[in-house]
Computed example of a mutant assay.
Amino acid sequence: MSGLKDFINVDKTSLAISVASIAFNPLAWNIVAQNEYRNKTITRVFGGNTRYGCYFLAFMIFSFGILRDSLYHQALEDQPTRHILPEVYRTVVPVVLFLVGQTLVLTSTWALGITGTFLGDYFGILMDHRVEGFPFNVVTNPMYDGSTLCFIATALWYEKPAGLIISAYVYVVYKLALRYEEPFTSMIYSNRATNGKKAN
């Protein structure tokens, strides 16, 4: 057990809090967004204005994302430090991974816009067509993939093996979230297509 603690200290409260926050974000936003689609709860709070409701949810998602990242950094501070990469790669690899990750996140946000990025389709704010340009022509889920790369880059930068384990956990959490998000989003657009045909 002492050998394992050389790489990750599971007794640290900050680790548990970080892991919980990582799971909370996609789970909470899926629940909130699906409730919004069915019951229009947030929209009603904003007097029926779907865009204000979506902007509010975007602000909440963004804020909790910053909190999640802060908790991750705190967790890493409490974890053992070990050389992970050969010295020649210790700086360049995490920097490259972080830049690639941020590029995927920022360019996907630019391509989708605020409402496209932050679950606007659950508010009835639908895009006219599927975005197929960069970065979606490189990876299917650039927001989640880019975020995962940033977690990995941070772990490598601070030389925290526990961070790599958390990053693997992030990847799994995102994949599970997509199993709920993608079918629901497809259903929303399928319903629009069906209703459009009926209207014609």
Results as ranks from 00 to 15, higher is better:
142 P>I: 03
174 Y>L: 04
7 F>K: 07
160 K>F: 01
154 T>G: 04
75 A>P: 05
171 Y>Q: 06
183 P>M: 08
39 N>T: 06
90 R>H: 12
137 N>A: 01
21 S>I: 01
123 F>V: 01
135 P>Y: 01
57 L>P: 02
101 G>Q: 02
99 L>F: 07
41 T>V: 08
67 L>A: 12
137 N>T: 05
183 P>A: 09
182 E>Y: 08
89 Y>H: 14
188 I>W: 10
58 A>M: 10
190 S>I: 00
85 L>C: 06
133 G>E: 09
192 R>K: 11
105 V>R: 09
153 A>I: 06
39 N>A: 11
13 T>A: 13
133 G>I: 03
52 Y>C: 00
29 W>K: 01
136 F>Q: 01
52 Y>L: 11
34 Q>H: 11
9 N>R: 15
26 P>E: 07
3 G>T: 04
166 I>A: 03
20 A>Y: 10
27 L>Y: 08
134 F>T: 04
89 Y>F: 15
30 N>V: 03
64 F>W: 13
3 G>N: 12
125 I>K: 02
21 S>F: 13
151 F>W: 15
13 T>R: 11
43 T>H: 02
160 K>E: 01
189 Y>C: 10
4 L>Q: 04
71 L>A: 05
173 V>T: 08
173 V>I: 15
72 Y>S: 04
99 L>P: 01
111 A>T: 09
193 A>V: 02
36 E>L: 04
126 L>E: 07
132 E>I: 09
46 F>E: 03
154 T>I: 05
200 N>V: 10
155 A>Q: 07
188 I>D: 08
56 F>I: 04
148 T>L: 06
144 Y>C: 06
115 T>S: 14
6 D>N: 15
88 V>I: 15
109 T>N: 09
149 L>M: 13
87 E>I: 05
70 S>P: 00
82 R>C: 09
196 G>F: 01
139 V>R: 02
142 P>S: 09
56 F>V: 01
155 A>I: 05
69 D>F: 14
175 K>M: 06
89 Y>Q: 13
106 L>G: 00
15 L>Y: 10
187 M>S: 14
72 Y>I: 03
196 G>W: 01
150 C>W: 00
22 I>G: 04
9 N>Q: 14
167 S>M: 08
63 S>G: 15
99 L>I: 08
23 A>D: 03
144 Y>G: 02
102 Q>K: 08
160 K>C: 02
37 Y>H: 15
63 S>V: 00
87 E>S: 14
163 G>Q: 03
175 K>L: 06
182 E>T: 13
136 F>R: 05
129 H>T: 14
8 I>N: 11
7 F>W: 14
90 R>I: 05
78 D>N: 13
14 S>L: 06
198 K>W: 04
92 V>A: 14
132 E>M: 11
188 I>M: 10
58 A>D: 08
43 T>L: 03
76 L>Y: 04
104 L>G: 01
83 H>C: 09
176 L>C: 11
